[in-house]
Nucleic acid binder design. Structure first.
Lengths: 352, 352
DNA sequence: CTTTTTTGCACAATCGATGGTGCAATTAAT
DNA sequence: ATTAATTGCACCATCGATTGTGCAAAAAAG
């Protein structure tokens, strides 16, 4: 009777079964049947057959014909990080809510990989692309542009299309102020007591550093260059920077600003190699939020970027269609030490 | 001259430009040209034209024709978590190495969502599916089976196809022993001093609990039921369990085993509501590894599951083709407190 | 009972690639 | 110089949907 469920049913199968033409079946099943003046009873018949035979449309075929796929892409630098993984989580929810299929890929902060990955996505005719934290957003833009693909930058801005990013300058100021204030109980903080580690020469790092230096100069009176240590985005390099400092000074700086949770992991590696006393009284600010990071044995002030705000804004802009590129700043949030915030997972129901 | 890069070049465009037939172009560009005895010079010509016009194959068309897509799916419960996001990271690297395109989606631990998501992936003719931590692996299996899709379970086993999972029983024993040993310096641990929080009625939780209870009974002499508190996989519920205990006892248990980092976040929320003293001398074991979690102000012993081992094994099995379902256990690793391990991100080069 | 309008649907081209088949031109064998 | 074998490629059906167009039957208008 039923075809062993081996091959999937197609509109042609249903066409035969129902005695209607394939185009009628197609129209009924994709919702355009009213426009095509298909009788309600015919539609009903076809729908029931589709149900019975577990018909599901072949989306590649549909995509080929209509040159749209229903896929929406998110390009991340990396998955393994709370900031980007919560972005993926939020992104998925938004895309699902629009009835499309989210597809999340990472490109390892490699410009070449970024472009190639996007090429691949384009080959699948994805409908829109969200480019998060790209190392070379304009390179990605060129690829998208050539294919007429709607896209938008998140987290790191490009110059060729809209970008929705965290207000890194304000966030940097906010965090720096909070660090300095947190130290006020102790003996006054000297300029060379406050360092910044991590980040590279990207827009986010530059802005954060700008905010950091400005606040530092204003509040501590000076802002020596050697206190800025951009180590790239790798735990290993960051660790090395701490080790170097420690080898020279025999201690860590009293307070420091860490550019991202990935760099923060470099600090952890350092800590793992040294006894507790080494960091008995440091104060750390981290431009990223990680719930576990917030409860470490020294004060950790964090910045949580408004991921949901950024993603929402990005969808808004993408939906509006083309317009001259703008930079949209989303305010981040300061998170005091020992704070466990809710996240995208809290939206999920936990069934049992 | 060049068509404004508006529409992408197709084999037909190249066919006209080269004076060859479309099938020849196709053969040259997909690598089957030798089999078709295309002249080297013809191939060369076509390749150069393809390059010049930036030809890239339309993968939907190819997929439609060949009913394969080059896509390999990973179905996760959630993204926003170090365990699963590192799995995504590792998975991507493996898939890329095979020249396919990874696509990672999450289904929120909802059986219905799981099946539907898989249906969607199938509609795109994905070639293989890795089902990680599914709430209803056998439900997913049925869907895959009906579509003839190769798939494999990871992290949580099903009964209908191969499963590669962490050895939760051994891991549970390992962790429980380590917790108890860690408490040995203090006054002897009583059975009611050691609790377990988190998890639900899934295979992983059951095995871990089994290991926990066995070791506890063996080492502490008893294993009262009330020390087992499966709270589901949500921070909120876990927090509630801690609050309840605390309201009743005025303190936390001396030591406890937390079933996953997600449940651990419930502890963080609890901690955020209470002063430091409340947890001055607790000992925590967590069945998951999170680098930040490892450095909290109380001893945290963690289990790191061998994600790379699991993914590698899974690929091996998928490649072998069908055989009667088996359960493959991968040994997890015990991580002592204050340990920052390397992760998948360390494989990335950090360019600047 | 015509003529017009509306209803309901079938036909066929198309999206871009793949792969089986067949055939002319070239080369080798006899 | 024939015949046989090989080379090199073109032709065409096909994958499963979408969509513009056309036309017969039914209903409404005159």
């Amino acid at each position: 009777m039923r075809q062993e469920s081996k091959k999937k049913a197609t509109i042609y199968d249903l066409s035969v079964l129902s005695g209607c033409s394939a185009s009628t079946v197609s129209a009924v099943l994709n919702g355009t049947w009213q426009k095509r003046r298909i009788k309600e009873s015919t539609a009903e018949l076809i729908r029931s057959l589709a149900e019975k035979h577990q018909y599901t449309a072949n989306l590649q075929a549909r995509g080929l014909r209509s040159s749209r796929s229903g896929l929406v892409g998110l390009l991340l630098p990396v998955h393994d990080n709370r900031y980007f993984s919560s972005m993926a989580q939020t992104f998925e929810a938004h895309v699902r809510a629009r009835g499309q299929c989210p597809i999340v890929v990472s490109a390892c902060r490699d410009p070449q990989e970024e472009r190639q990955t996007v090429e691949t996505l384009i080959s699948y005719s994805i409908d829109e692309l969200f480019v998060a934290g790209a190392t070379d957003p304009d390179g990605v833009h060129a690829v998208c542009e050539a294919a007429g693909l709607k896209h938008i930058n998140i987290d790191l801005p490009g110059t060729k299309t809209h970008s929705v990013i965290s207000d890194n300058y304000e966030g940097g100021r906010l965090l720096t102020k909070a660090i300095i204030r947190h130290c006020e109980g102790d003996r006054p903080l000297q300029p060379e007591d406050l360092y910044l580690f991590g980040g590279r020469n990207d827009h986010a790092s530059r802005e954060r550093i700008r905010g950091f230096r400005e606040v530092k100069r204003a509040m501590l009176g000076a802002d020596p260059d050697e206190c800025i240590q951009p180590t790239g985005y790798s735990p290993a390099m960051t660790q090395k920077a701490f080790e170097t400092f420690y080898a020279r000074e025999g201690r860590l700086p009293r307070a420091f600003f860490i550019n991202s949770s990935i760099n923060f992991e470099g600090l952890l590696r350092f800590l793992g190699q040294h006894p507790h006393e080494t960091f008995a009284d440091i104060v750390v600010g981290c431009y990223d939020y990680d719930p576990f990071g917030s409860f470490l044995p020294f004060p950790v002030i964090m910045i949580r970027q408004d991921v949901d705000g950024m993603i929402s804004k990005a969808f808004e802009i993408v939906d509006q269609g083309r317009s001259p590129p703008e930079l949209h700043l989303i305010q981040p949030e300061l998170v005091p030490p020992r704070t466990a915030l809710m996240g995208p997972l809290d939206a999920l129901k936990d069934i049992d």
